[in-house]
Simulated scan of single mutants.
Amino acid sequence: MKIFKNESVKIIMKVLVTGSSGMVGRNILDHNKAHDHNVLSPSSNELNLLLYENVIQYLNKHKPDIIIHCAGKVGGIQANLREPVKFLLDNLDMGRNLVWAAYQAGITRLINLGSSCMYPRNTQNPLREDDILKGELEPTNEGYAIAKVATAKLCDYIHKEYPTYSYKTMIPCNLYGKWDKFDPDASHLIPAVIRKVYIAKQLNESSVEIWGDGQARREFMYAADLADCIWHGVENFESLPFLMNVGLGYDFSINEYYEAAAKIIGFEGGFIHNLDKPVGMKQKLVDITKQTAWGWRPATTLSDGITRTFEHFLMREERK
């Protein structure tokens, strides 16, 4: 449907967002662009991505103009090591069911969210899109990565075999932000750091433990920036590359993330390095050449992002 406003044409689309209760999904719904479109954000009870028949029935009934697929089982190193079968099967089933059902339902536009875990562990940084499947995956999240690669490849194969179907994959760098998971059994680096440093301050502890030597480098983008990129993709879909990294173009060491969190939280103690703990890849920095050429860049600094995430963490703590 088209509506006319201020002498310009505005296209209102029916947009299906999977995983709308997760961190990325909630940031997508929180973005001001969500108010410009008719957004479908079903719960897992309404749309169970693990059941193909449920998916195809939902898509045939609602017929969205475009799908944003950000649902998935996610977690940090501990969770991936503890449940590799579930991380592989759940993410594989969700991706396969949704993408294939979208094709069967005649939905021609889809944005699939991949992960920088898709890249081989020893690939030279920055990681370029054509590096995928050119080496061994990082063992600490291999199952999750395999599922993400398979879903991205299915999107690619469908477009190559049926060119009118444009199924595109964004590969974001590591994320953090509002609605993140702070549970140590499921959290990623930055929310885990915020929680650890906050508890250490509350208990007047003299130090906080860091896994490894803290020299490994990571690129973390504020999730609201990814949401902005996704909406830019929805509204500029034709120019969006079929496979594109989304990131900052620069990274920080693990030590620097702890130091930044400590400064914001007000923790004045020191740090102890536990060299017996796993640390994953030494560096994971994505190449943003395509993203830059496409015309989008993130806006949130590390200090602002951690500050907003910490404020969200405190709100959660107060509600407990």
Score class of each variant (00 low, 15 high):
residue 1 M to K: 05
residue 3 I to E: 14
residue 5 K to P: 01
residue 6 N to G: 04
residue 7 E to C: 15
residue 13 M to T: 12
residue 15 V to I: 09
residue 15 V to W: 03
residue 17 V to K: 07
residue 23 M to E: 10
residue 25 G to K: 05
residue 30 D to R: 14
residue 31 H to S: 03
residue 31 H to M: 00
residue 34 A to N: 09
residue 38 N to C: 08
residue 39 V to R: 08
residue 40 L to I: 03
residue 47 L to I: 04
residue 50 L to G: 15
residue 50 L to F: 13
residue 56 I to C: 09
residue 57 Q to C: 14
residue 60 N to M: 04
residue 65 D to H: 00
residue 66 I to Y: 14
residue 73 K to P: 03
residue 77 I to G: 00
residue 78 Q to G: 09
residue 80 N to F: 05
residue 85 V to D: 15
residue 89 L to M: 14
residue 95 G to D: 02
residue 99 V to C: 06
residue 107 I to S: 10
residue 114 G to S: 08
residue 116 S to L: 12
residue 120 P to S: 10
residue 128 R to Q: 13
residue 129 E to Q: 05
residue 130 D to G: 09
residue 130 D to R: 10
residue 136 E to Y: 04
residue 141 N to I: 06
residue 142 E to M: 09
residue 148 K to R: 05
residue 163 P to F: 03
residue 167 Y to D: 09
residue 168 K to L: 05
residue 173 C to L: 06
residue 174 N to K: 03
residue 185 D to V: 11
residue 186 A to K: 08
residue 197 V to N: 06
residue 197 V to T: 11
residue 200 A to K: 04
residue 201 K to G: 08
residue 203 L to M: 08
residue 203 L to C: 04
residue 204 N to D: 12
residue 211 W to T: 11
residue 220 F to K: 01
residue 224 A to C: 09
residue 226 L to R: 02
residue 233 G to T: 03
residue 236 N to D: 13
residue 237 F to P: 12
residue 239 S to E: 10
residue 243 L to E: 09
residue 245 N to T: 02
residue 251 D to I: 07
residue 252 F to G: 07
residue 253 S to N: 03
residue 253 S to M: 05
residue 254 I to T: 03
residue 255 N to T: 02
residue 257 Y to S: 00
residue 260 A to W: 11
residue 266 G to N: 10
residue 269 G to T: 01
residue 273 H to A: 02
residue 287 D to N: 05
residue 292 T to E: 10
residue 295 G to C: 03
residue 296 W to S: 06
residue 306 I to Q: 01
residue 313 F to Q: 00
residue 314 L to N: 10
residue 316 R to L: 15
residue 320 K to L: 14
